[in-house]
Design a protein around this nucleic acid. Structure first.
Lengths: 328, 328
DNA sequence: CTGAAAGCGCTAACAT
DNA sequence: ATGTTAGCGCTTTCAG
């Protein structure tokens, strides 16, 4: 900027005015400055600008895995809202590791992002964020609630959705329904399990421990759990899958077992309508969740100082066939 | 930092030493400083640090749409390599709009990212990046080559992959094969079309204009093109789809038409093996591409100053059934 | 309308 | 082992 000023024969502040489109510069001098800028290939250093101005016009997004379609849709929505507010987006994947979540969030804070959108990793304790929140970094939790910290949160109707899905299977005549879920220390997994249990209890149906399996969503673990639920003295006739990865693993295993059982999955999938039968799912709205979270964030940055808000988005049952087969 | 120094009764530089783990501080004073840091909830301001040090330990990634599984896998790979090098990642979606690509790239540059990974938007002219490259921002293009600029580039074997896929259909006995692709101003789309034409020419087969349709990947456009290719005096008996979105739209339309034609798609899909028949595809390796691009980038940042390099990753045919049905 | 000076929070280079 | 000074590139403040 100094170089530009020298070349244009003006003061530093005049260059600053031109660069930022501030008024108070004759079009004549402005032109001279512009010429110097293009000649020198000058680009304002936003790091320095930020240092002075305080706001960085950037937001940090920490999620489990950007390669997961659920999170990548969510991410895109956060990005869109951020763009409308002139903010850039840092993204980072925690891989469900609380330590990595913390490292990412604190690294973003050290860069002085204006705000943070966080999908908590399983078991993460968010007291580490208290100093940052106090320092004014707007923070919104999404998909799962924070632990040890009170902040804006966006969740899906996990329990209600699972209850509805399970109820749907019950209404088809099923009485032995299995639930295959993610690790129980993940909030969404626990909530969906709760919804399943509620639906079973409401219908007066017992839950055989053999039908419920919570754990990592690796194909092997899910496949083994599935096989276990379908064998033994009280084999399940229907299956509720706790998230998209479980559903994919289960469908694949069922295919290889050549067994056809009723199945409903939590989370919609790209090709769900093209399987035979079509996959009945309880669909969340990842883009809607991302949008809602970003809106809460920018409301804070816009001056809202009320108590933390909690938004819950509905999950809706999409009937396609796999959940409508009666018990064998 | 000044406050911490005052509270600990030490100089500014001593605090800096402690914060950065530099040697030359007695464990006694270091402890006092640490106490002051936690008491005040101090966190180093990396923006200021960056301003002083020059390097920002951040990378900008511009792609078409982070919600697309191909790009989200790629993104995750870039993130992983960046993390190994201690860098954070800015991401932004251009939505195939050259202007937005430029805005994003220049915004990242203004933040003084150390490097840039760019999926060029259709028709973008990259001369706008020349000043930034000259200023030392390492730049790698991925998925599509740059225009008007010579820089490191990572591509898939688009033409070879399409040729192999088309050849596979020909070997199944098909002679009338349609090609449904993305807009022809997108490099990958044009290359894949070229591969298709080469395979047809090699086999001495004519290409009816009615079989080739390039354009937006909206379900309606693809569906209409598909219908057109399958009707008329010389209906196609097989179909090559130019990318994942085209494939999804085509499979869906075929289903609703209740027509079964041989089909091969470029890009693998999550559920490809679960459709009936399984979907034969020419698969790229998005994670491998992201990794390669990030490695080229950090090689530059590590001091490599040789001429721009070009990496081409193979695309491989995965046989699952849909591409192995003979002509009706 | 224009510019000089101070300072954002930190680190490099040099004292002590 | 510790502290002091200058300055990264910009904006803010205030004076011409």
């Amino acid at each position: 900027m100094k170089d530009v000023a020298a070349r244009a024969g003006v003061g530093l502040k005049t260059v600053s005015r031109v660069v930022n489109g501030e008024p108070g510069v004759t079009s004549d001098t402005a032109e001279r400055v512009q010429a110097a800028i293009t000649a020198l290939g000058f680009r304002r250093n936003d790091s320095a600008r930020i240092l002075r101005k305080g706001r960085t016009a950037s937001v940090g997004l920490v999620l489990e895995d950007i390669a997961d379609p659920f999170y990548s849709s969510l991410s895109r929505a956060v990005e869109e809202v951020s763009r409308l507010h002139g903010s850039l987006l840092f993204t980072g994947s925690s891989d469900e590791d609380p330590e990595r979540e913390e490292q990412l969030a604190l690294a973003f804070c050290a860069r002085r992002v204006d705000g943070l959108v966080i999908v908590p990793a399983a078991g993460a304790d968010h007291r580490y964020l208290a100093p940052e929140v106090r320092a004014g970094i707007a923070t919104v939790f999404i998909d799962r609630p924070p632990l040890g910290l009170n902040a804006d949160t966006v969740l899906a109707a996990n329990a209600a959705g699972a209850r509805e899905g399970t109820g749907h299977l019950i209404r088809q005549g099923h009485r032995r329904i299995a639930f295959l879920g993610d690790s129980p220390d993940i909030h969404t997994a626990a909530e969906r399990l709760r919804g399943y249990r509620e639906a079973m209890a409401e219908a007066g149906l017992p839950v055989d421990p053999n039908w419920v399996a919570m754990g990592p969503t690796t194909p092997d673990r899910v496949g083994a759990a599935l096989t276990a639920a379908l064998t033994g003295p009280a084999p399940a006739t229907a299956l509720f899958c706790g998230n998209n990865r479980v559903t994919v693993a289960a469908v694949r295993r069922l295919r290889s077992l050549d067994r056809s059982v009723a199945l409903i999955g939590f989370d919609d999938l790209e090709f769900a309508d093209l399987l035979s039968p079509g996959l009945t799912v309880v669909a969340q709205d990842p883009a809607g969740m991302g949008r809602a979270a970003a809106q809460l964030l920018f409301a804070r940055l816009g001056g809202y100082t009320g108590p933390p808000r909690r938004v819950e988005l509905p999950a809706r049952l999409i009937i396609r066939g796999s959940g409508e087969t009666p018990p064998a």
